[in-house]
């Protein structure tokens, strides 16, 4: 690497700067949407795994294992290349032609399902660490099973598992980079494209690294605030 001519300005020069910004915007959108869907589904599935009903436990266990055990990249390929083929032809055409950015939404499906299975495991672990008598105490006041989970067990369990949830949240944002493999124009894709146009790979990938660092540090900060908000005496406390 003799006399490599650094040219950092490619990161903001026209048109590359706006490519980068578009990429960042897509990464953030993808991460945020997937995170909230995954949190909702994960909490639901994690709860179903500890309920007293066999059928719901069976379903939730199947769900968790299915989406947790297959590599994310393979799942994305499945949703992108295989799943649409299974649909009736007219639906498949609608998916590709009728929905703008269909590849974006396909990644939303894949990444949300994958992440939700991991969140479900954390939620389940949190719930299993809550004593039986805590459930009994809530039931003894006249709560239904649903109310017991809704008002007592889920809010309690989420507080217990905030540290691993923070890690999951970071992982979602990092995993959005796999979306480039199905042509979603997110940060990684854009940095690769800049590299292809300018032959300035070092600057382009370094730029992507910095972008991910900033995004993940922001996530850590926000989750820290959430943890502080939710912190209650006697449970895990943030030091």
């Amino acid at each position: 690497m003799l006399a490599y001519d650094f040219k950092w300005s490619i990161l903001w020069a026209d048109p590359y700067g706006s490519w980068m910004l578009e990429g960042i915007w897509v990464t953030i959108k993808l991460g945020v949407i997937c995170w909230f869907i995954a949190l909702f589904l994960g909490t639901l599935i994690g709860t179903l795994r500890v309920t007293p009903w066999k059928l719901s436990r069976l379903f939730a266990t199947g769900y968790t294992e299915l989406f947790r055990d297959i590599p994310l990249l393979v799942q994305l390929f499945f949703w992108y290349f295989a799943a649409p083929r299974i649909l009736p032809h007219s639906w498949e055409m609608y998916l590709y032609r009728g929905i703008p950015n269909s590849e974006f939404w396909i990644v939303v499906v894949g990444l949300s399902l994958y992440t939700s299975s991991r969140i479900a495991e954390h939620i389940r672990a949190g719930m299993q660490s809550i004593s039986d008598d805590q459930y009994n105490a809530a039931l003894s006041t006249g709560f239904t099973q649903f109310q017991t989970y809704r008002y007592v067990i889920i809010p309690y369990a989420i507080r217990l598992v905030i540290p691993p949830l923070t890690t999951e949240c970071l992982t979602v944002f990092k995993n959005t980079s796999l979306a480039m493999t199905v042509a979603v124009l997110e940060t990684t894709f854009m940095s690769q494209q800049i590299e292809a146009y300018t032959f300035h790979g070092i600057e382009a990938t370094t730029g992507a690294c910095v972008v991910y660092m900033i995004i993940t540090l922001t996530v850590v900060m926000i989750m820290g605030l959430v943890e502080k908000r939710l912190a209650v005496p006697g449970l895990i406390t943030r030091r």
């Binding site: 004593s131 008598d133 805590q134 009994n136 105490a137 809530a138 003894s140 006041t141 006249g142 709560f143 109310q147 008002y151 007592v152 809010p155 309690y156 507080r159 939710l230 209650v232 006697g234 449970l235």
Partner: peptide, 28 residues
Amino acid sequence: MGMVFQRFELYPHMKILENITIAPIKVK
């Protein structure tokens, strides 16, 4: 029937007042 447990089993994420009012509000 009300029930009281050996290890109290209060809801740790709710203030004392809420611990007491939640069932009357949600159930009754």
